Amino acid sequence: METTNFTTTIVVDNSASEVFNAINNVRAWWQGEIEGNTNKLNDEFIYRMGEIHYSKQKITEFIPNEKIVWLVTDSKLNPLKFKDESEWTGTKIIFEITEKNNKTQVRFTHVGLVPAFECYGDCSWAWGQLIEESLFSLITTGKGVNVFG
């Protein structure tokens, strides 16, 4: 069984500091409702997209301009679509920031979101849109985009 975690990478001309600040401005790039703080170690926040998605994240690593890790402490995915509504619980969402050749790379990995997950297709597609389009736009233009219509 394949256990590859979902990952995607973007490269921008912005500084690591600008990238770090954009990632932590979660409300600007992750569509849905966000409750709580999202910008320092041990912050906890809840993300909701109607009845489709609920997850609670705790920031467990916070290294300025280098790395951010969210631990998903609770989750409930669309019960009409998925048998295991809590697939995300216990997974980690990681943003790794590196500078190279006057560019900044963001490597996004959802550790635990693997092809064996029932939600892998939908969730990996959504993360791809959010990171490659909305977060990329926020970093490069100052405004995230609504990727879910």
Rank of each mutant, 00 (worst) to 15 (best):
A22R: 12
R48A: 02
K56C: 04
G121Q: 14
P79D: 08
T91K: 13
R107M: 07
I131A: 07
H110V: 03
G121Y: 01
E132V: 02
I68P: 05
A22H: 06
K40F: 07
T60I: 14
E18N: 12
E85C: 14
P79L: 00
K58I: 02
D13H: 13
W88Y: 13
V19P: 06
K56G: 01
V69H: 06
L41Q: 05
L71G: 02
I59E: 06
F62M: 06
W125T: 12
N146Y: 03
I52L: 14
E33D: 13
A126G: 15
I34G: 06
L41V: 00
N5Q: 04
S134I: 03
A16E: 10
S15R: 10
F62K: 07
G121K: 15
T91C: 13
Q57H: 14
E85N: 15
I23Y: 03
K92M: 06
R27K: 14
V26L: 09
G128N: 13
A28T: 00
L130H: 07
T4W: 01
E2I: 06
Y47N: 02
I10T: 09
E132H: 12
L138N: 09
E33R: 10
W30T: 03
T109R: 10
L41K: 10
L80Y: 10
I10A: 07
T141C: 09
Y120I: 08
D74S: 12
D74K: 15
E44A: 05
K83F: 01
I94V: 15
K40Y: 09
T9H: 04
P64I: 00
L41Y: 03
I23M: 05
A28F: 01
I93Q: 13
V11I: 12
G121W: 00
I97H: 06
T38C: 09
D84G: 03
W127R: 09
N65I: 00
K58W: 02
T8I: 05
N14S: 14
K100W: 02
N39D: 14
N78C: 06
G128Q: 04
F45Q: 11
L71T: 11
N78G: 04
S55D: 13
E85T: 15
Q105A: 11
Y47H: 12
N42Y: 06
T3K: 15
E132N: 15
T98Q: 14
G121N: 13
F62S: 08
